[in-house]
Every structure is written in C-alpha cells, then in structure tokens.
Design a protein around this nucleic acid. Structure first.
Lengths: 340, 340
DNA sequence: TATAGGGGTGCAATCGATTGCATACAAGGA
DNA sequence: TCCTTGTATGCAATCGATTGCACCCCTATA
C-alpha cells in the first residue's frame, strides 16, 4: 500500500532526470515526448517507489477535480442504489469519483447542496431530482455547468437526460389490465410537477383511449409525493368514495405499496378485490404480499448511460447536441393483478 | 450561484489588502489576527464577489482532503443506505464529504479500492466490510490511517468500531421464540468469518443454554454469504434432512427471506409450519409476506457514530483510545413467529 | 525621550503537479 | 565543414491557498 508520500520529484531524483520529464513519461498523452529508455526507467522507478500522483496538485493545476456530484432525493429509496451503482461503475472506469447527496425533496436543501457541490469544484452534476420546470437548473445550465438528468426530465428538454420510456411502460400496464378484462381502471398518479408523474398520467389517458376504455376523472387521484403514505391516503380516499373500479395504476411502486395498505385497512384484498400495477420494479418488490405486477425499468443502465452522457459533456463541452436518451421498459406480471 | 472563479487575490485587490490578510480574515481560527474593521470589509467583499475557497488549493497546502472513504459490500443491500445517510449527515456537518465504494464481497476488489481511496488522499476510512481477521486492515492501521469499522468488528479489537449488540439481539430473539413454546430452534447462521455471523451464532448457543433448550448441531447451518440464495439453499437442505424443528433464527434478514423461499418451495408456510426470526430490520422487511419478526438495529445511528469516531481519530490522531461502541438492539415482533 | 513590546500586515516560500519555452545535442543536407 | 531541422530534456511559471517571518507603527514604561 505504501502510504509513503512519494512525489514526482522523488521519482525524478531517483532516476536522475527532471520532474517534468517524469511527468511526461507517466502521462500516456505525452509519453512519446520522452525516450523510450527513460520512459521505461521512470515507470519502473515510479512503480517501485510506490508513486501515486497527488490528485489535489493535479486538480489545482488542470482545474479538473475528476469528481462528479450526484444528487438524489433519498438514498434509502431502493430505486436509487442500483442507479448509483451504474453511475459509479462508469465514472470509476474513467477515473472519476461520484459524490452523493440527498435532498429529501427539499428545494432549499437542494439549492444549498448544488451550491456546495459547485463550490467543491465538481466537474459535472447528475441529478435525479429535477422538476418539470426547474429554474435553478436552468441557471446552472446557462453557466455552462455539465449537467445530466437521470430518471426525470424537464419540459423544455434543455438539459440532457436519460430517462425511461414511461409512456411505453404505462401502455404495457394498461394493455395488461385490459387484457384481464378490467374496464374501470383508476390512476393513483405521482406528483405532476415531476416528469415521471406527468408523463405516466398522460400515458394513462392515452392508453385508456387506445384500449377503448372510458376515462372517469373521479378515478384519478394525485399524490404529492412518491411515498407509501401518499399512496395510502389517496387510495383510502378513493375507496371511501365508493366509486366502482376493479384495477388501479400506481404512480410508482411505493405508491402501490401504499395502496396495499389502504386495501388492508379497508378489509379488501389484492388482487381479489382490486388489481394493482406499480412502476419501477424496485428491489424486493417481488417479495411483497402479493408480489407486485410492475413496469421494470433498467435502473443500472440509466445510471450508466447518464454517467456516459455526462462524461461526454465534460469532454466535448456543454454545447454538444442536447439529447434525451430513453430506455425501454418491460412489464413484469406477478401476483397483484388478476382477471376481473 | 456565481460560477465565477473568484480567488483570494481578487478579494484582496477589491479590499486593498494582501491575500494573506484575506486568508486570515476568512479563517475563524485566525480572524483575531486581523483588525475587526478589515475583517468585516473582507467578509463583505468575499460575500458580494461570491468568493468560494478552492478546496484543491486548500488540500494541497494543508494536506487534508476533507474527504472520507466509505467502503461497503453493496449499496443495493438495503441495510447500507440508512447507515450511509448517518455517516454523510455527520461528516457533512463537519465539512467532510464521503466517497462510497462497493466491494461486492470481493477481497481483491477491496484491496484495489482501498488502494485507490488512499491514493485519493482520503483523510480516513469507514469500512463495513471487515472480516474477523483482516491483515489488510491491520496494515493500514499500522500505517496510521484513521480507520473505523461499522457494523462489523475484528477479533482483536485493534481497530475502532461501531457495532450492534448482536448478542443482546439474539438473546431477545431466542427468548421470544422460547416464550412462544419453541424448543427446537434451528440456526441458519451467517458467515463465520464475519464478526456478525460469528457473534450471533455464539449468542445463539448461549441463549439456548439460558433458556434451557437443547442445542442440536444438526439444526445448525452456515451460510457463506448474507444473501437470499444462501439462506434458501441452507434452509432447503435443512428441510430435506427432515429434522424436527419448529423455529429458525436467520443470520440476517436476507437469509430469512431465503428461508421464506425454501419454505414455499417445500410447500410449507411461515409461521404455521415454522417461525422465523431475522436480524437488522432492514427497510421494507415489514411489507413482506409474512412481515418478518426481526431484531432492529439502529442503522442510522451506527453510521452517525462511526462518522463521529472517525472525525475524532482524524483530529486527535490514531493513537487515541481504541474503543468499541456498541449500540443496543430491539426485537420487533411481527407475523413470522407464532406459538408452537 | 528613548526603548521595549506587541499587534496588524505584507512578503515570499510552499504544497505537487503541468506545460510553454529555452536549450542542447544529434543527424542530415548542401 | 557549416547550417538547418528536429527531438529530447531542463527551466521556471503557474494553479490558489496557507503560514513563518520580517517589518512597521503605536503605545506603555523607565
């Protein structure tokens, strides 16, 4: 491990050349400037002395921290760890490190965190917290900060993003329910200020039309957070209204779990009394009672793609083609849906 | 946000003093060296210009990166996110940042990661991956690297650690089962190379004695990883052996989930045919079928305590009293245990 | 009034790397 | 043989902060 703080100068002394020569020999980009023989000697000495470049010195000089900020709502939401692993793996392969921060869905906190990240001189940011209209991000974007959104998008697509095919996923879900004979399908939608909540809800309306099913606005409930509590409350309210419906689409898996709770509270059971479909296929959701039918997203891949997109923005500048990468979803049928 | 790269010199120019004076005025430790009047002017100028100290320059000069490495087996294991939040919150309050890495329980990978972390000049390390006997850590320890273990410990207690009262938790669990009338209790133990696996298993033996129950070695199975698959395999083997038992202690919640699977495979059900107790009370485990009776640990607190311990080691040097902090556990009774 | 003491600032070196420019040396052409 | 061309290396400035030391000036004391 050699904690010994060996510097370029030490290596240079050891080989008998100037530090700058060592620097050049060790950098693949400039290695050709140096005699093959010396380069070899330098490499060997660096190796044997256990030389490790000082990242601070490097960063100070080059103005690149090789660090990326990753901002998410909450790490304890099982949706995010796989995304983060995707991000970290790709970043790591390119010598970058991720620094993670949680906003707990608090805008003020988010502003502070963004500020702190930028003060830390991160080379770019990956955000999973974007709202559909996010002036704060627009500001950063305007400053030319490399920025990539993951899982969510902004309405004007002004920022590069890697998202799921939310609409496609919802169409699969509605088609599945329709195929089981459900005609009155409720939507316990997610927050409409977030692209995921909005797009999925719109897709619900579309898909109902496609399947030739009637949309009853009284079967549409909006959660103001992606949480079990919100799902439970909205579903409870809906049940209390005694509307007639046999299936429900939940804004995501947590909301679906809230629906489970509400059903249990009401003495009903899933899928006998109500079929429920979630979204995300978060880890362990297949172990719940009943195992949730849900739309699987590629957690790891959207993270990995986001990291790749960010790296390309860091390398090629923020001017490069603003693009949205959309990954396909897949319907995973489990025990929470049944024929009507 | 002011991305403008304002430096100390800029502030100095603006106020009309020397950069070193600005440095002193802005540092609370040295602020008294400066006239109150100038200090005020400097603060104001720094504020209005949007000055943000360059952390690389600071680190390069002071040799402190204000960065801490956190090494865990796998972020997607729900046990860790709450621990990490505890770590990050405490570190953040003290101006430190956590850098997280996953080993996937691969020793070689762990060695590489440790090496890379150290090359990154982290000021200290928090590890959740320690084995009972870990020569690698001993090396780091010997080099004087500030090091704190979280959740796990090493046998010789040579490294500061923050762990749960594993033994206490197991005693609660066994007493609970005994209270329900169970006399033949199996132990699907975790890896014995880890302190958690070892201590819990030893505690199982102790507790059985305390409760006056006979220990049947044929009811003891060892998993070589804390995973659903291992739990499933060991429980399947145990069931296949047709031994007589009415309850099982699982090494942790994941192993317990594996036991669920094995039971289902065998056409048996929990808790009717077998009571199961887990360990950790990981997030969402209360939503499983059946909700798992388990030992709750203070995820967030052990993380927070570990961070505090590390900070104190960083500040006061690694020589300070080597201590083990042990946090109490609590038994959470749910639906996976029933009277015999 | 001279001098010691001390508080407030400025100066300059330093942390460890990168990099434009200068230089030295070798080879090749006239 | 001399000059050009080019290549390999050294020199020194630089990134932005911190900090020991020197200095100056003001006040208190003899």
């Amino acid at each position: 491990m050699a904690q010994g703080r060996v510097t370029l100068r030490d290596v240079a002394h050891h080989v008998g050349v100037h530090p700058s020569t060592v620097s050049r020999a060790l950098n693949p980009e400039t290695r050709h400037m140096v005699t093959e023989e010396i380069a070899a000697k330098v490499s060997e000495a660096a190796q044997s002395l256990g030389y490790r470049p000082n990242p601070m010195a490097y960063s100070l000089k080059t103005n690149r921290s090789l660090t990326v900020g990753v901002i998410i709502p909450d790490l304890t939401n099982p949706l995010f760890p796989p995304i983060i692993r995707g991000i970290e793996d790709v970043l790591g392969m390119h010598g970058y490190t991720a620094v993670i921060a949680n906003t707990d869905n608090d805008f003020d906190r988010e502003e502070i965190i963004l500020d702190r990240m930028w003060a830390r001189r991160v080379d770019g940011l990956i955000l999973a917290t974007a709202r559909r209209d996010d002036p704060l991000l627009a500001e950063y974007r305007a400053e030319g900060v490399p920025l990539v959104l993951v899982n969510r998008d902004v309405d004007d697509h002004s920022i590069r993003s890697v998202i799921n095919d939310d609409a496609g996923g919802i169409h699969l879900a509605v088609a599945h329910l329709a195929g089981l004979g459900h005609r009155r399908i409720a939507d316990i939608a997610g927050p409409q200020a977030l692209s995921t909540g909005f797009l999925r809800h719109q897709a619900y309306r579309d898909a109902m039309g496609v399947e030739g099913l009637e949309i009853d606005d009284r079967l549409i409930m909006f959660c103001d957070a992606y949480s079990i509590e919100c799902g439970r409350r909205q579903m409870s309210d809906l049940l209390a209204s005694r509307r007639d419906f046999t299936a429900a689409l939940a804004g995501n898996d947590l909301i679906a779990l809230g629906c489970y709770d509400a059903l249990r509270d009401a003495g009903l059971s899933c899928p006998q009394d109500l079929s429920i479909v979630g979204f995300n296929d978060m880890p362990f959701i297949d172990k719940m009672a009943p195992p949730l039918t849900t739309v699987r997203i590629r957690h790891y891949d959207i993270g990995a793609e986001a990291a790749r997109a960010l790296l390309s923005e860091i390398d090629n500048g923020t001017e490069s083609s603003v693009a949205q990468i959309r990954l396909p979803c897949e319907l995973i049928v489990r025990g929470s849906t049944a024929p009507v």
